[in-house]
Design a protein around this nucleic acid. Structure first.
Lengths: 186, 186
DNA sequence: CGTAACTTGCACGTCGCTGTGCAAGTTAGT
DNA sequence: ACTAACTTGCACAGCGACGTGCAAGTTACG
């Protein structure tokens, strides 16, 4: 399970053998726990997505901008799962499934974007489009930060800054927000 | 060739059969032109990347911010090729090849970012990191715009705004720049 | 017409991955 | 020591995609 996350994060098309080896097992042994490859991946992605979705929906802060930054922050905390989830949300046999699980998260994000209109979030781009861009930007930064083996602190901050940038804040305002909000320093 | 671009854009792992059909040929006939599947993809990606790279490096405007917007704009003009190129630059057997071809482009982008420091480009993020983020953001927007079948004008504008946002401009300044610069209206 | 280039259809072998069957081995719990 | 759960190794069949060989057909050009 854990092994699958690691391996599939490296190569989403990795064979069952690679996963088994990573788990310290034989390919044959895996079939004792899962009916087939898809069942394994399904199980993993569903669990992971559920955890992430729950964590993101739970974000609740009076200021919309802080909520946005917190979303980026929590995503970073679950990078591995997030990257897989977002990957599987686009291609693969689980698109629907994952999309369904992400619905409340996306709704929450959209609400936050709308809510932020009076706090500096740009309105020149339709809210739903902007929400998608913010989501995409977060994932993209996560990818980049992972690829360059960025430190936890740097990655988190970068994710927050990028999300706020796409949301429409200028650099100065974003840095001020991140530095002066206690919840964003945790 | 053209067919390969279309098909692989839908599914990067598409079989040779699908490509042949799209081209109005038989799988067998393709082997009359290319030694094997890899040769075909290689040829296509190399040609495409070369074109794009050339177009992007040729961008030359006194204002760095305009250069950034132009990069996004030209990328949008070559969406299909760009998406494939960026995809192949990360995974697949051509990583090195593509990365090599993109080197001058990335250097140009990095120079532009550095150059923009005095024109509103954020400096709180290291220039090389920021350059990567801008590149990633552009691709991400292209993907999103393609997925939602956005109109040419909308897609182009969105790409420009997103790139400028990540570069550190606030929404108002970005819109002003895009609207008031003749080169960005073309 | 004749020829050269190209395409087609079909057959075939190969490769890599999947999923299963079975006998034998290991490990943990009682 | 006995059992139950789990693992291993190996063998096998299936599937899909690749790459090739060959005979027959089409098309363009002289």
């Amino acid at each position: 399970m854990e092994a699958a996350r690691v391996v599939l994060n490296r190569d989403p098309d990795a064979g069952l053998d690679a996963i088994a080896v990573e788990a310290g097992l034989t390919r044959r042994a895996v079939y004792g726990h899962f009916a087939n490859r898809d069942a394994l991946v399904q199980e993993m992605v569903v669990r992971g997505t559920a955890r992430v979705a729950e964590a993101l929906v739970a974000i609740d802060h009076p200021q919309p901008l802080v909520r946005l930054a917190l979303i980026a922050s929590r995503m970073w905390r679950e990078v591995d799962t997030m990257r897989l989830t977002s990957l599987l949300a686009v291609r693969g046999p689980f698109q629907e499934q994952v999309a369904e699980q992400l619905r409340p998260v996306r709704r929450h994000l959209l609400d936050t974007v709308r809510d932020g209109a009076r706090h500096g979030v740009r309105t020149d781009i339709p809210a739903d489009t902007l929400a998608r861009l913010i989501e995409g930007a977060a994932i993209m930064v996560l990818d980049e930060a992972t690829r360059t083996r960025m430190s936890a602190a740097s990655g988190r901050r970068l994710a927050m800054l990028a999300v706020l940038a796409v949301a429409g804040l200028d650099a100065a305002a974003a840095n001020r927000l991140v530095d002066e909000t206690p919840e964003l320093r945790a």
